[in-house]
Nucleic acid binder design. Structure first.
Length: 489
DNA sequence: AAGCTGTCATATTATGAGTG
DNA sequence: CACTCATAATATGACAGCTT
């Protein structure tokens, strides 16, 4: 694919989509695959996990910079050597302090670690279970190269790490602030499910969660006959799980809290599941964790505050960020063909739908999206039209009801009214009723109508004499019919 | 009896500050 | 950036008293 080099000045003055530079650097890949140390002595400490992620981040950033590298890694099994400064690595990992000996020690341990990889597919089934070391080589610069770190990752592992469907992208700024390993691990392993429709994590066996959170421990014994067995779940819960849960839930930058679900078989807790409970957004609903620049970009696309709010609740920041990046790319490609995007907002929505369902970039066909964007816009207009019709229908019903109601002989109307006024619904509508029963008192009539619908549906039916008074579809047909007879073509 | 829960002592990790 | 020292924060084992 031909791409304009980025430093080439634009030929035409444009109102280009400006993507904040921070966007890419904010993006963070976190294990969606579960990597559990095989040996107990390799249990991952907090900093170990942080470095693990930081190495992947270095690899990701590097691979993204080099065009076509990811493809070659997957197809030709090449394994590039990544190079980074120890300070950068520490910063990416979010490890405070400046004692880099600690970093080196952790890296050494990381190199030695023998891991069992459970690669979980989107359907939360384990697709692969494999064993591998994380790093295949590790080198430290000496002399004038001091502070430099080189490492390589086995291509089969790297391919997994770079595979987007296996890795959730998470915001770097959220990664810090977990001061214990289990809290970090819980966040990491749970949050990859945050975009699922049901807003729950997979229900994994208790032993699996324990291993994910703390690795080998006295809470799980490997029974050669019955497989993995959990002992002292209560102790685990008290000492590890509850604390980790609290730490995650106290993290203000996150939009959800986790709720523990203990699934039992008999009396034993056999599986654990976590449910995402949206935090109540106070007053301003704008996603506070989203960088201002991104909010400004969305606003420039034509999103209102409340639309952004909805966006933030339906999609993670990362998905939105990815969408912006792709929108920018699509814009560039179209420009190369001297075409422009007519409706960026609709286009954005189209790409968003694709990103959210995890489509690869190659599948993003420009004309297809353009068509989808148009279809969506049309659908939106149709929905708005439909909404207007519904309102008109409701108005029609109210008018019909009001007219018929006051046509009723006093003898029939009075008992109906007294029944209503003595009902709980009638009492709640007291203020409205007090204004008197006149055709102008629409509020009271609406309450009466709602009450009739609940308590006396048969009576209400009588008010709606014609089919077009009762059903929306019949009303639509009736309305069409009347329009045609009024202005014959 | 088996499983919780609270508490204490102690070992291990994480972090912050300072120096060359 | 490498290294040292001091301290704060966590993890863990052990035991008592309590509940089911």
């Amino acid at each position: 694919m031909r791409r304009r080099s980025t430093d080439q000045p634009a030929l035409f003055p444009t109102e280009d989509l400006i993507i904040p530079e921070t966007l890419r650097s904010f993006r963070k890949a976190v294990s969606a695959i579960h990597a559990v140390p095989v040996k107990a002595e390799h249990n991952q400490s907090l900093n170990n996990r942080r470095l693990f992620d930081a190495c992947i981040l270095v690899a990701l950033i590097d691979c993204r910079k080099r065009d076509g590298l990811i493809k070659r890694i997957c197809e030709e099994r090449v394994s590039p050597i990544f190079e980074t400064r120890v300070t950068d690595l520490a910063r990416l990992a979010g490890i405070p302090g400046k004692n880099y000996v600690r970093i080196y020690e952790e890296l050494d341990r990381l190199y030695e670690m023998d891991l069992r990889w459970n690669i979980v597919g989107e359907d939360s089934k384990v697709e692969w279970e494999m064993r591998a070391h994380f790093l295949s080589s590790l080198g430290y610069g000496k002399g004038h190269r001091r502070g430099l770190i080189r490492f390589s990752i086995d291509p089969s592992i790297l391919a997994i790490l770079l595979e987007p469907s296996n890795w959730a992208t998470l915001s770097l700024q959220r990664m810090h602030g977990f001061s214990t390993g289990p809290a970090y691990a819980l966040y990491q392993n749970a949050w990859r499910y945050v975009n699922t429709h049901a807003k729950v994590t997979a229900a994994l066996p208790t032993a699996t969660w324990i291993e994910l959170l703390i690795g080998h421990s006295r809470y799980v014994v490997d029974d050669p006959v019955h497989g993995k067995r959990v002992v002292n779940y209560g102790d685990f819960k008290r000492r590890v799980l509850v604390d980790a849960l609290n730490r995650v839930n106290e993290t203000s930058a996150l939009g959800y809290t986790l709720e523990l679900k203990e699934l039992r078989s008999g009396t034993r807790v056999s599986k654990l599941q976590f449910k995402f409970v949206p935090k109540k957004q106070e007053s301003l609903g704008l996603p506070v964790t989203w960088p201002d620049e991104v909010l400004r970009v969305l606003a420039s696309l034509g999103f209102t505050s409340s639309e952004v709010e909805d966006l933030s609740q339906a999609h993670s920041f990362e998905v939105v960020a990815e969408t912006l990046v792709r929108l920018k790319a699509a814009e560039g490609r179209l420009k190369a063909q001297s075409r422009t995007i007519t409706n960026k907002k609709a286009y954005f929505t189209g790409i968003l739908a694709n990103v959210a369902t995890g489509e690869a970039e190659d599948d993003l066909n420009v004309t297809k999206i353009e068509a989808e964007a148009k279809a969506q816009e049309a659908a939106r207009l149709a929905a708005a039209r439909n909404e207007r019709r519904k309102e008109e229908f409701a108005k029609h019903q109210a008018q019909v009801f009001s007219a018929r109601f006051f046509e009723l002989p006093e003898l029939e109307r009075a008992p109906l009214l007294s029944d209503f006024e003595s009902s709980s619904a009638g009492k709640r509508a007291g203020i409205l009723v007090a204004k008197g029963w006149t055709p102008q008192n629409a509020g009271a009539l609406a309450c009466l109508r709602a009450w009739l619908a609940d308590e006396r549906p048969a009576t209400l039916e009588q008010f709606y004499a014609h089919p077009e008074d009762r059903s929306f579809d019949a009303w639509l047909a009736w309305r069409l019919d009347r329009a045609e007879s009024q202005e014959p073509a």
